[in-house]
Amino acid sequence: MPMAGQVRPAPPPYGPTSLVRRRALGDIPDVPRPQDLSTQDARTLSETLFGRLAELDEGTPEYACVRNTLVELNLSLVRFAARRFRNRAEPAQDIFQVGTIGLIKSINRFDVSRGVDFASFALPTITGEMKRFFRDTSWAVQVPRRLQELRLRLAGACDALGQELGRPPTTAELAAHLRITEAEVAEGERASNAYTARSLDLTDDDSGATAVMRTLGREDPSFDVIECLDSLKPLITALTDRERTILSLRFVDELTQAEIGDRVGLSQMHVSRLLAQITNRLRTGLLTEG
């Protein structure tokens, strides 16, 4: 231990954890606080990290390091999903932790080669984990843990026997399947009556039920845009190089037809005809089933 007045020696610049992180990231710049990045920067870095994750062996410290960074980068998705359930009785921290499990599952299953946006892929899984948590914990009155577990076992047995028998199972069949008494089956069914059948899609709003109707009635145009863009990809790929260039100059660079003509060496009228042909072909492709 250093004596008073002595300067404690500085720690080495890289500890074992830092060395693993440097090996894990490779040429990717390290971001000390990923959660402070903007949404666009986080999305761009996530794409790069998913590519890096595919290069690493699962189970290695480097793989875990990159995956943990991806979790930190995308925790905003969990917060976004959790806001839908702010009015639930369950602690917000528990909801957030369950949503984080869904985020990790999404990262483990995400295939970057499919060209799907990660947020669109992950949000259903995150929300699904939260709803599953509510299904297991939403009770109108306090019920012993034993009866909560019995209710879940009965629900599973009803589904299994219903498919096998082609009809709802009897109390005796449930008891034989679960190896319990018929009295215990009846007790579990009574416990099910204490289960809250509240909508899992209820959002936090002062207007109560009106909030549900407003949520169900509102259409998000972003989903339609994403679907159309995904459907357009193979159609645009089928265009010639010149047609793709003209399309990009018009709708990406937002040039006029005359400016496009100067770029590609065509008249403004020729460009106009080509654009009409291209857009009609794309429109027909989008509207054609299959």
Rank of each mutant, 00 (worst) to 15 (best):
P9M: 00
K105N: 14
D230N: 11
T240E: 15
L287S: 14
V66A: 03
V264Q: 08
T60P: 05
I260W: 01
A211I: 02
R86E: 05
I126T: 03
C65D: 15
L178Q: 05
Q6K: 09
T127G: 00
S199Y: 07
G217N: 11
R43T: 14
Q148G: 08
G285Y: 05
T240P: 12
S76D: 14
D224F: 00
L275M: 13
A82S: 08
R21Y: 07
G99N: 00
G102I: 05
V225C: 04
Q35G: 01
S138K: 00
V141Q: 04
F85A: 02
R132I: 04
F223V: 11
G166W: 04
E149P: 02
P91Q: 00
R190F: 06
V212N: 11
Q148I: 04
T181M: 00
L161E: 06
D36I: 01
T181W: 01
E55S: 12
M213Y: 11
D94C: 01
R263A: 06
I104P: 00
A92D: 07
R79K: 09
R153I: 00
M130K: 02
G285N: 10
D41L: 03
T279I: 12
L255M: 15
E227D: 15
R283H: 15
R86Q: 05
R146H: 02
D30G: 14
P16I: 09
D30Q: 10
E149D: 06
T39D: 15
Q142R: 03
P34F: 03
L77A: 11
A155P: 10
A119F: 03
D136W: 01
A4L: 14
Q142A: 05
L45K: 04
A172P: 07
L274S: 12
L247N: 12
I126K: 00
L235W: 08
S231V: 02
D220F: 03
G51D: 09
G99D: 07
G99T: 05
G162T: 05
V112I: 15
R242L: 12
A183E: 14
R214M: 12
C158G: 04
Q163L: 11
G265M: 04
P124Q: 03
R218D: 10
